[in-house]
Amino acid sequence: MTIAETRGLTKIYGAGETRVVALDHVDLAIEPGEFVAVMGPSGCGKSTLLNLMGGLDTPTEGSVVLDGRDIAAMSDDELTSVRRKRIGFVFQFFNLIPVLTAAENASLPLVLDGVPPKEALGRAEEMLAKVGLTHRSGSRPDQLSGGQQQRVAVARALITDPALVLADEPTGNLDSRSSEEIAGLLRQVSGEWGRAILMVTHDPRIAAHADRIVFMRDGRIVDDTRIANSDSARDAMERAGLL
């Protein structure tokens, strides 16, 4: 069973001289609860893949199937509704609304979906507690550290119970300690709460939290590796040259 799948997904930017094939017939299937990291050099199409899967952009060719529905063919309004209900985004630059409090930011997708603000705020507070931000729910983003802001963003991504959480370099703007915490949080989101996560990262240590790593190059997937449930630590240590 897959929750999200791309078939022959292709994205071409520009035309003629400036034509860039950002994605070249990518097939990728993601299972529920799976934590997938996408790695690859800059410009290889990672963000493009995420944007297409999240319905932020429309493919040149191919399809994205989410919950059994092809979102490539949807209108802007339909896409908007899918993004609101079925997809959670975590961005590199947190992208919180500076004039709203942490709880208000986290409750945004619910409020946009028509949930009464009071109820939405209540649920946001719960979600913030889950991601470990109990006492800062009334703070504005500029009063929070980067790691805390990203936690708010994760809470916002999760609040509508999305099928798929997309995170484009969620730790790209954080120090290593906060990065580690956010990666651990995402791991928990997939492992304990059963959400599928697709995360772009450059950092092997962050990628190592995933169950599976997809390597991309020049718009194509060149390697797709399960890394969870591997050999014992002994082998690991040995190969690390410690023994």
Partner: peptide, 10 residues
Amino acid sequence: ATLYRDLHEL
């Protein structure tokens, strides 16, 4: 792949 597995484990 091996290294990532190890990394994951560690």
